[in-house]
Design a binder for these strands. Sequence first.
DNA 1: AGGCGCTGTCAATGGCATTGACAGGCACGT
DNA 2: ACGTGCCTGTCAATGCCATTGACAGCGCCT
Lengths: 247, 247
Amino acid sequence: MEARVAGQSTSRQATAEQANRRRVTLTRESILEAALRLCSPEGGGQLTFSRLGKELGADPTAVYRHFRDKDELVLALTDLVIQEGIELARQTLPDGPSDDWRAFLAVTARSVRTSHLARPALAVLAAARTTASPAETHSVEQLISVLHRAGLPVVEAAECYRALLDMTLAMTQYTAAFSILDRQAQEQDEAAWAVKYGMLPEDEFPLLHRSAPRLTELFRDDDTVFALVLDTFLDGVAVRIERARKA
Amino acid sequence: MEARVAGQSTSRQATAEQANRRRVTLTRESILEAALRLCSPEGGGQLTFSRLGKELGADPTAVYRHFRDKDELVLALTDLVIQEGIELARQTLPDGPSDDWRAFLAVTARSVRTSHLARPALAVLAAARTTASPAETHSVEQLISVLHRAGLPVVEAAECYRALLDMTLAMTQYTAAFSILDRQAQEQDEAAWAVKYGMLPEDEFPLLHRSAPRLTELFRDDDTVFALVLDTFLDGVAVRIERARKA
DNA sequence: AGGCGCTGTCAATGGCATTGACAGGCACGT
DNA sequence: ACGTGCCTGTCAATGCCATTGACAGCGCCT
């Protein structure tokens, strides 16, 4: 019995062995779920096929039966995250179509950011891709509608939407990329900055010297910086709305 | 003669062989130069040790004698690009300290963006790192000074600088990441969008339907979108300056 | 009962960063 | 002149990664 050809002996004994390592049945959904888990900071914060295989209790390459390549997987995941972001915004916003354009835009942007930051690893991977998810279409229509009702011409409202969303995604991904870094690199950066701001000769850089404390606070406090950018951007939108009303 | 121990036979024949593959002498500068070349779209747009080795005519691992790891190399490269950006801004701006804060900010942001976009591969790699390059200190002081003279309190001016720069870097890196993608992925994305915007039922999404042409134009025309964001942001800064003056 | 396709497994490939052992050469001191 | 030792390039090997092709079980349809 032991004399069987070693490589092929997967018929008898295998049945017993496979009692443990049962051939798991994967579905598109179970894979996406596991992948999402891996992308969160608690899940290790890295999405690779081997980790995914382990998480699923299956061979890493089994995933290829459901997604042509990693890119397709990432695209599908991004779609989920976008839906989640929209959902989050919906919950935060009042039901009826509000006329407070500023709140609407701010909540939308922050929701998108929040849902992406829950999976930094995915945010980094998804960086460049756009999904054109049907889920968001309705939200976009609403967003443009709010701006239009506020006084902006339709096309300008659309431009505003595009600008807001791209800015938000870009800054979010920027934050995500940093949060993925290992402690060492993060601390290295921080140390470099501290030194830089600490050693500014007051006579040569008077203003920088005075703002050093604040800038140090702001160092990689990306959420605050994002809030700053968003606020300023929205002030700019207000100006545009004013201009449009007068014209 | 042929009976020599194969692995060790590098003494005689090697002298002849090495006439071709002369032991190249690397310097920090020659490496940085070559790496920068590789990062540009013409240079292949990908920075790896093996490509770098080939570019230098040396063994890939020779680079480790000059940079501890890839991260350190990227940091050094980023420094160069930042300097280049500052230089570019200096050339574009009038010499004396101008009082046109808006032009100053716009030119600075665009210069940073331009110099980074000349090496998309590097922009992507550098994503998360900050260099605290001494080269930029003077520029920052000037930037804050311009805003301060315009009427902003020092700390708020510093916040503004931080916001503007982070926004610019984030959006630039976002663009760079897309430009790195292979044609297939880019076209795939574009097709998805075209379909999406082409098939919008007018009765359900009236506004989106009307703005579809503009949104299609804007699709991944990242430079225009950046211009939009920057403009709106600067409008917002103007508001803040007004507010500060009145107070 | 037979066949076919769906899906998991396994082994292999090629690219990547990184490491440790080795070796040539140059500068220094004697 | 002659060693000694560091600086720096080379080579082979490691380990992680995505991806592929050959194989095999299982269920469904006929």
